[in-house]
Design a binder for these strands. Structure first.
Lengths: 215, 215, 215, 215
DNA sequence: CATGAATGAGGATTCATTCAT
DNA sequence: AATGAATGAATCCTCATTCAT
C-alpha cells in the first residue's frame, strides 16, 4: 500500500529533521547549552516526539556522531579507491584532501568527536551504539595505515612502523583542523586554514619519505 | 603592619585553595558536572566566598586556564633558553619535549583548553580575562616561530614561511596529544603516546629540513 | 451469523487480556508506576485499543476492582449457602474462611480496594461504575449481617445490633489481612498470617456469644 | 548571640511549615497527586528550599510518618502509664482509646502509614530513616503485648500467646479505623465510627477473657 | 475496529547566584 | 570579609490521551 510507504518516508523525514535540528543547536550552543526543548522546537515537533525517536539527549549526539563518521569513512574510502592507481604518496594526499573537505563542509563534527570523550556520555548511550562509534572512528585510521603500508612496500616511504606513521599523520591533521576551528584563534594565528593544512601534508609526507623517519 | 601582611597572605592562600579545589573537581567530573557547592566544600570555604573571589563559575575556569598557560609559557621559555646554544632543530626538540612534559604532568589542561572554544564561555568571563588567555596561548607559538626563524636564518630549515611552519609544528603536536588523551582511543590505536609524539617531532623536523617544505 | 459470534468472542477475549495485563502490571509495580503503554504491550494490543475498551487508566482499575469484588461476593454467597444447615457461628466461620481464601489466592486485591479511597480516583471513573463498586463492596457485609442476625434469632449470638456486629467482624478481619499484607510487617510481627486470622475469628465469635457484647 | 538563636528557630520554623504544608497536601490529594511545587507554595518558600530541608519528596513523607508515629507512641505510652494501677483489661481499654483519639484528631496518618508499604518508597528514602519508621511502628504493638501479658499473668486474660493476641487486637482496631476512614463507606455502613470502635474493643476483650481464646 | 505516531502539560530535581546578617 | 540560607529559572524526561489513517 502507498500509505504505508508514505508513513515510512515521513518517519525517516522526521527523524532526519530532529537530527538536523540537534546538529545545528548542539553546534551553535554546545551540547550542554542546547536544550531538548529547543531541538524539538526547531525540528517543529513536540518534545515527546524527540524522545520517541531517541532515548536520550546523549543518544541524539551519538547518532549525530555515528552518522557523521559513517559519511566520513565512506568519503575516505572512495578517495582511496579513486587514487588506487597513483603512487602511495599521492594516494595519501587524496585521503588527506578528502578528510579536509569533509570537515570543511561540516565543521561541526569536529567538536562533537571530541565531546564524546567525556565520562557521562558513555553512561547515557546504549553500549552497542557507543561501540559502533568507536569502530567507525577507527576505520579512517585503518585506511591510512593501508596506504602507508603500500608506500613502504613500494619503497616510497621509509618508515619501519606503518601503523605509527599513519597515526602520526592522522593526529597532525586533526591538530591543524582543531587549531583552526576557532575563529578567534584562526585570526590570531594569521595563517590560512587550507594553506596550513596543505603545508602539513607536504611536510609530513616529505618527512616520511626519507630514511629513519619513525624509528 | 603585620596584621595587614597576614591578611594579604591569607587571602592569597584562600584564593589558591579555591582554585585548587576547582581544578581537582573540574578535572574529575568535567566542568559541567562539577558544582560550585562542591568546589566550596572541598576548598573549605562557604559558597559565598567563592563568589567573593571569582565572579562566576566560568571565571574560575578561566583563571585555571590562564594560570596553566602562564606556567606552560614559562617552562617553554626556559626550555628555549637552556637550548639557546644548540642548533635550531635541537632547540625545537627541546621545546617540543617541554611541551610534552607539561601536558604529561597535567594532562587535564588539554581538554580545558579546548572547552574554552565553546560559545557561552566567552560571555560569562570578563572580556579582559578572556583576552589575556588568548594572548598567553599565543606566546608558545611565538616562541616556536622564533626558533624556526633562526633555523631558516642558519640554513637548517628550508621553509619560506617560518610562521606557518611553527603553526604546523604546534598543531601537529597538539593533534597527537589530543588523540592520545582519551584512554579508549589510546587503547584502540595501540601505539605508545610518547613514542608517537617523538616520531612526530622527528618526522616534522625532517620534513622541515629539506627544500620546498611549505611552499 | 458465525462471523458475528466470533467477533463478539474476540472482543470479550481482547477485553479480558487487557484486564489481565493491567492486573499483573498494576500489582507488580503499583498503579502509578504502571503505564498504559506497558499494559498495551503485555496485552499484545495497541495503546489505542486499550482506550477503545476503557475510557481511562483509572477506569481500568475500577473494572479490575469490580470484577474482583463480584467474584468475592459470589464465593462468599456460595460459602454461606454451603453452610446453610450449620449453626450461625459455624456459618460465620465458613464465611470468614472463604474471605481469607479469596485474598490469599489474590492478595493483590487488598491494596487496590484501599487505593480506591483516594480522591482523584472518583473523578476519573464514570460515576455509575463507581457506584457499582461501592454496592458490590457492601454485599459482602450484607451477607455477614444476615448470618449474625440468624445467630441472634437462634440465640447463638447475644448482640443487640447485628449490623454493627457484622461490621466489626468484617473490619477486624480486614485489619488482619492488611497488617499481614506487607512482607516487612509480616516479618516484624513474627506471627503466622493464617494463624492470626483464625485466632481473630475465634476470639470475635467468642466475644459475640456471651451477653452484653456490643451494648 | 541572639542572632544565632533566632536563626536556629527560624530554621526549625521553616522546616515545620514545609512539613505542615506537605501533610495537608498529601492528605488532600494523595501523595502522588501532590506536587513539590504545591508544597513549596503552600509553605511559602521556594521549591529549592524544600530540597534544602528534605532530600526528596518521599523523604518528606517519611518524616511525616516518623513524626506521627513518635507522637502516637508517646501518647500510647502515657496512656499505659496512667492506667498502670488498673486491671489489665482496663489498661487495654485505655490504650485503645488513646489510639482512637490519635487518629480521630489526625486522621491523615492512617492512609500514610499504608502508603509506606509500596515499593518505590524504600528506594527513595535514606535507609536509616526507613529503619526508624519501622521501629517506631512496632513500639505501639510492643506496648499492647506488655499489657496482654500482664493480663495473662493476673489471670484476667486466658490466651496462651500474648503476642498473637495483641496483634489481633491491634489489627482489628486498625481495620475499624480504616473501614470508617472513607466518608462514602462510612455513610454506606450506617454505623457510628466511635460506637463501632468501642464495640470492637468490648467484643475483643470479652473474647480474650474466656478460655481457649487463641489456641 | 484497530493502530501507533504525536502530543504537551506536567513533574521532580539541580544549581549558579544573591544577599541579609 | 565571610557566611550559608534562600531562590527560582532551567532541564531532562514521562505518560495519559487523542486522532488521522
Amino acid at each position: 500500500m502507498t500509505t504505508r510507504a508514505r508513513r515510512e518516508r515521513e518517519k525517516r523525514e522526521r527523524r532526519r529533521s530532529i537530527l538536523q535540528a540537534a546538529r545545528e543547536l548542539f553546534f551553535e550552543n554546545g551540547f550542554h547549552h542546547a536544550t531538548v526543548d529547543s531541538v524539538a522546537e526547531r525540528a517543529e515537533v513536540s518534545k515527546g516526539t524527540v524522545y520517541l525517536y531517541f532515548v536520550s539527549k546523549e543518544t541524539l549526539l551519538a547518532h549525530l556522531l555515528l552518522e557523521g563518521l559513517e559519511a566520513l569513512v565512506a568519503e575516505l574510502a572512495s578517495a582511496c579507491a579513486e587514487a588506487a592507481a597513483l603512487s602511495a604518496d599521492q594516494q595519501l594526499r587524496h585521503l588527506a584532501r578528502a578528510y579536509f573537505d569533509f570537515f570543511d563542509r561540516d565543521p561541526q563534527y569536529f567538536p562533537f568527536l571530541m565531546a564524546m570523550d567525556r565520562g557521562k556520555f558513555q553512561e547515557s548511550v546504549p553500549a552497542e551504539l557507543y561501540e559502533e562509534i568507536l569502530q567507525s572512528s577507527l576505520e579512517g585510521l585503518t585506511l591510512a595505515v593501508g596506504v602507508v603500508r603500500r608506500g613502504v612496500d613500494d619503497g616510497v616511504f621509509a618508515c619501519p612502523d606503518p601503523e605509527k606513521a599513519a597515526c602520526m599523520f592522522w593526529a597532525a591533521l586533526n591538530g591543524v583542523l582543531q587549531l583552526m576551528e576557532h575563529p578567534l584563534r584562526r585570526e590570531m594565528v594569521g595563517v590560512d586554514k587550507k594553506a596550513l593544512y596543505e603545508s602539513s601534508v607536504d611536510t609530513l609526507i616529505k618527512g616520511l619519505e626519507g630514511p629513519h623517519a619513525d624509528g
